[in-house]
């Protein structure tokens, strides 16, 4: 029997195991030691490791990122937690001007092993400022590693890998992935950065989904199966470095690809992935590309509009169908509640 764990429990287990193994790991962030413990992901850590290693912070994202960098220079391995990725915007100065640059700018004299952990929000009225995922902006910056695992297995292995990496790692979770359950080995393990995960095999079309959009792509893959379309679903897992080779190999096989961003389409990961595919495949014409992502407006709160703001399994499936059979032969799967919509109720 495989050991089944929920996504947040896999995160908590990774933190607990890595803090036990390495006394230099410290956890910082607003609410990391409070009763809700970042949706349970830091549960029990302050009791086990003490308040010097598991520490609440003032609401000072920029300053506290600098503190994490300074602590890293002093030999610690801080993980700085933001319960919404929107709050990372307040720390961009330290992340981009300092953390990402210091190893290079000082000619290798120092290095910055910090993890910036953040959770993307979605649904139940998260609205314009609790729903953003700014990984495309960060992918534009050299010196950062960016990971956004979608499965409990990868979130545990990815977090342990992030804590052992000697560079700044932006570690991206998604609120709706917190309902994912999956196989998670009990022992400590890592997953390599720069290696995409093929979540489903298929030969008719490639669906690349980032973060929670990997789950939507998997659902779309199941819908498509009912109409005889075999979709290959890829979760890049790490966005910087990006495993373009796995995506390229799949696309050369299927000749069709949709990249579903968990953010806006403009200058997004989809733009980057498709540009890289085009550059690497300039002699092999005939590949059909499509980008999907957030509607190019701030996220509305009312579900009446929010539902049209995000791509979902249905829109992904019907887009795939249209790419295979053409516009006039359209098809949309029957509506079905997602597991999150069933289980995720407010207020938070």
């Amino acid at each position: 029997m495989p050991r089944i764990l929920k996504y947040p429990d896999a995160i908590c287990e990774a933190l607990e195991q890595e803090m036990s193994r390495d006394p230099s790991v410290i956890v910082l962030g607003q609410g990391v030691d409070d009763p809700k413990a970042i949706l349970g992901t830091t549960k029990g850590l302050v009791e086990k490791f003490g308040s010097e290693r598991v520490s609440d912070t003032p609401l000072a994202e920029d300053g506290m990122t600098g503190v994490a960098i300074g602590a890293a220079l002093a030999g610690l391995r801080p993980i700085h937690t933001h319960i919404r990725m929107d709050f990372v915007l307040l720390a961009m100065n330290q992340i981009i001007n300092m953390a990402a640059k210091m190893h290079y700018m000082f000619g290798g004299a120092v290095y910055i092993p910090i993890v910036i952990r953040s959770i993307i929000g979605k649904s139940w009225g998260q609205g314009a400022q609790h729903s953003q995922s700014i990984y495309p902006m960060l992918m534009n910056i050299p010196g950062l590693k960016i990971v956004a695992p979608s499965t409990p297995y990868d979130v545990k292995g990815g977090l342990i890998q992030s804590l052992r990496d000697n560079n700044p790692v932006v570690f991206i979770e998604h609120r709706l992935l917190y309902y994912q359950k999956g196989h998670v080995p009990e022992e400590s393990y890592t997953i390599p950065f720069g290696k995409a995960r093929v979540l489903a095999r298929g030969s008719h079309i490639t669906l690349v989904g980032i973060s929670h959009m990997a789950v939507e792509c998997l659902r779309a893959q199941r819908y498509l199966k009912e109409v005889g379309i075999e979709a290959e679903v890829i979760d890049p897992v790490s966005l910087s470095p990006l495993d373009i080779d796995t995506i390229l190999a799949s696309t050369l096989k299927t000749k069709k690809i949709i990249v579903v961003d968990n953010s806006w389409i403009t200058c997004g990961a989809g733009a980057e992935i498709i540009a890289q595919l085009t550059e690497k495949n300039h002699e092999n014409k005939g590949i059909v590309f499509r980008r999907m992502g957030f509607a190019f407006v701030p996220c509305p709160t009312t579900p009446a509009l929010e539902n049209s703001f995000y791509p979902n399994a249905k829109t992904i499936a019907s887009t795939a169908y249209e790419m295979i059979y053409g516009k006039k032969d359209s098809w949309t799967p029957d509506a079905e509640l997602t597991i999150e919509e069933v289980e995720f109720k407010g207020p938070f």
Binding site: D62, G66, V67, I69, A71, A72, L73, A74
Partner: peptide, 13 residues
């Protein structure tokens, strides 16, 4: 930018 870095270093010390 280096002010919080000094503070973080002191945290480590």
């Amino acid at each position: 930018t280096t002010i919080p870095l000094a503070v973080g270093y002191a945290y480590g010390l």
